[in-house]
Write a protein that binds this DNA or RNA. Sequence first.
DNA 1: CTAAGGGTTGACGTTGACGTGAGGGTCAAG
DNA 2: CTTGACCCTCACGTCAACGTCAACCCTTAG
Lengths: 133, 133
Amino acid sequence: MEIGDLAAPSGVSRRALRYYEEQGLLSPARRPNGYRDYPESAVRTVRQIQVLLAAGLGTTVIAEILPCLADPTVVRVPVCPELIDGLGAERDRISASVDRLLAAREILDALIANRDRPFAASLADLDAAGASA
Amino acid sequence: MEIGDLAAPSGVSRRALRYYEEQGLLSPARRPNGYRDYPESAVRTVRQIQVLLAAGLGTTVIAEILPCLADPTVVRVPVCPELIDGLGAERDRISASVDRLLAAREILDALIANRDRPFAASLADLDAAGASA
DNA sequence: CTAAGGGTTGACGTTGACGTGAGGGTCAAG
DNA sequence: CTTGACCCTCACGTCAACGTCAACCCTTAG
């Protein structure tokens, strides 16, 4: 499939796809005319990339773990060595982010719900989240 | 309290505090010598800012909702008008972010745990998260 | 007096994931 | 054979939340 066929349904821009390739996240084949030729599996890969990017992972880390996620039916995990430790750190970062996101959501919920009443509970939640950060 | 007294325990840099002021998030008084003079309540406010920033809210939005969070014991919510709708949108964004973060964490967990076994369940989770995005 | 360690205001640099043209091939349709 | 819709490769622009450096002032300890 060409870049447009991949971009449209994925909701990701062509520019982003070229950027992903530039960063080593995708390596589409090339047609004789130079056009990029993506396999069907690229759709899934792009979704993986999007999720990991949204989780705050950089393209370089994603480039490292993408091989471990590729073609699960065919290939085995290529034994990522000490990379695992880095992933643990990333995992912790994500967990912390989730906590802060939830705390922020509580604040917003309080603001939305109690549009003209005071709210002390949300501030307590805030302290809890702040202490964990 | 001076800027250093606020920065140190809050874990936020002096530069950040000046930036917050520049963005209208903080308005410390000034000593005769020009030094910023923060009230004790600024500690709490800074934590609020940090949480909301970490939630992906911009400084402009935070500047709008901070008055609604200030001095809950003294002031009442100043009736934020249609701002509430924007907050609802932010809330939804946060919820979506949480979903994606959890999906990403599942991927990482699968990678960490099954360091040499395949993993199909995490890919299903990925599809679910990708569909909601 | 002087050095150390605060503070102040600019103002430019950074980082990451792209946006946005510029300038130019390719290809099926009319 | 030209129009229009794709594609390509540079390559600079953007945006946000600061980092960093410069050049300067204020204050306290020795």
